[in-house]
Amino acid sequence: MNDLDDLYREIILDHYKNPRNQGVLEGPTVHAQEGFNPLCGDEVTIYAQVEDDVVVDIKITGQGCSISRSSASLMSQAVKGKSIDEVKATVSRFKRMIAVEESEGEPEEVDLRVIGELAALQGVVKFPVRIKCATLPWNTLMIALEDAQAR
């Protein structure tokens, strides 16, 4: 059961049971974006409040499995208060960690001190089907931020 313990680390279960930054944001600087995983029916909506290229607040609603929900929760903590450029760098590091950056074949050694609690999601690498669960909120956030930058 080692792989499974690796997937369902304590941090993951904690963020699944007590997700951070849940809720809805409204206002002219809020960019809302829905994301779906057609494979399993997971749904997420990201509300990113962007002011002067900084994600000043983020809220999340939706339903999904422990991996997608905890990934969204961990993501919200990791990006809140960061500039869009810093967020992009975090997304890139996260994706490299779970080997979904297109140019990368193998998961990369990522400095765990930089990535922090997000490292808890590393176990997902061994479960290829679940990678989409983990990346759903991140891809959704990126669309919201592109929308913010386009305006």
Binding site: L4, L7, Y8, C40, D42, G64, C65, S66, I67, R69, F127, R130, C133
Partner: peptide, 10 residues
Amino acid sequence: DVHPHDVAQV
């Protein structure tokens, strides 16, 4: 309180 995806994984 266990998502079906997690059920199937376990």
